[in-house]
């Protein structure tokens, strides 16, 4: 069995991209990353030797990200609080509002399809099994998601304030 550090080295970036796409860049994505690897570390000694580490980590990341999204929608924040908790880790001065808005514009189904297929490299059929969908539906969701992300992103880049009306 590989030392767990090897999984972090090999797949840490992929997991971060999946989390950023599912919950938007920022503190929530960072929390989802941390919870993914902590929970993977716990379960790792019992993982079958022939398991696909990348697919396994993407599966955990998706679950953690969805848990976070649910928690966020269930607990309405009091009005005096800021809607987004500032990142404790993020790069000062860096503003990922554009990406956040582009991601937020996608329905969760499309974000999942893009994350699992394009970022984690899962075949459509496997991504479908994971999300309780069909391979065709995942293929459509992934391609619609990419198209929408691209279109949205172009609008955002061309608008002088980097924000949509």
């Amino acid at each position: 069995m590989k030392p767990f550090e090897q999984l972090v080295t090999d797949h840490g970036a992929m997991v971060l991209r999946v989390c950023r796409l599912l919950v938007g860049p920022g503190a929530d994505a960072e929390d989802a990353w941390s919870e993914t690897f902590l929970s993977a570390l716990k379960a790792y000694p019992l993982l079958p030797l022939d398991a696909n580490h990348e697919a396994w980590l993407a599966t955990i990341a998706r679950r953690k990200a969805i848990d976070l999204l649910r928690k966020r929608s269930r607990i309405p924040l009091p009005a005096e609080h800021l809607p987004e908790r500032p990142s404790t880790l993020g790069i000062p001065g860096h503003n990922d509002d554009e990406l956040r808005q582009a991601v937020a514009a996608l329905p969760l189904r499309q974000r999942e399809a893009v994350a699992l297929h394009y970022l984690a490299g899962l075949p459509y059929a496997e991504a479908a099994e994971l999300t309780g969908s069909s391979a065709d539906a995942v293929r459509r969701a992934a391609s619609d998601g990419i198209a929408k992300l691209r279109a949205r992103y172009r609008v955002l880049q061309n608008s002088p304030e980097g924000a949509l009306p």
Partner: peptide, 30 residues
């Protein structure tokens, strides 16, 4: 694997420095 379509490249922005910090956080949490 499928090449990252253009807008997805943004997801890896400042990834290196952030991953190093997240690694530190994982060390203490573990």
């Amino acid at each position: 694997r499928p090449a990252l379509p253009e807008p997805l490249e943004r997801l890896s922005i400042f990834e290196g420095a952030l991953l190093e910090q997240l690694h530190g956080r994982l060390e203490s949490a573990a």
